[in-house]
Amino acid sequence: MKAAVIVFPGSNCDTDCFHALRDVVKVPVEYVWHKDRHLPKVDLVVIPGGFSYGDYLRTGAIARFSPVMESVIQHANDGRAVLGICNGFQILLEAGLLPGAMLRNKTLEFICKHAWIRTEENLTIFTGQMEPGETLCVPIAHGEGNYYCDDDTLKSLHDHSQVVFRYCSEDGKTGDAFNPNGSKDHIAGIVNKKKNVLGMMPHPERSSEAILGSSDGLKIFESILNALE
């Protein structure tokens, strides 16, 4: 499996994603600057977290029009894997690769802490190494992670098994008390209908080694490796 990490002006998790892929998962990985129109031939494109274009206008709204995004959209439409983390998720929403939009966190605060998420769907290339219902401890760090979609879209997401991760308690219960940002239906991550594009607010690259306090996020990268090798 080969991977590429897209770098926008304002990306700040690109190095972490690169490190997790190269040194922990041990796959060939390269950076791709957002002005490059052509993607190298890779199996996985990672759109990392950060504050692309300073979050100006709306999170992800300007990055979505960066030259590289046409190739990323083509890569996704060809059925190859795309993982958008945090700001990467926001960019995927703005690009229309995933349905819905992001709102400011309900509390209006920037939230940076470990969160528990529950695996709702393990029949995807991103979650094959988890059991259904398995909980993961993965950090979040965002001001706009309050996922929103209308009720018809939410029904469609559930009908097509696209809700992959939901915020929960340590023992897997969902509820407002365990939802850090007010996201609709406690959603933390979704895939597209073809299930080759995952957007998630929590950061698996920040929880891929025991030294970081949790290595649960590694399971997501291992699932991808297992599915694509």
């Binding site: 709306r58 709204a61 929403l93 819905g100 939009a101 709102l103 929103y148 979609c149």
Partner: peptide
């Protein structure tokens, strides 16, 4: 195209 997000 850019200035508003019709979802929200």
């Amino acid at each position: 195209k850019l200035l508003h997000n019709p979802v929200i």
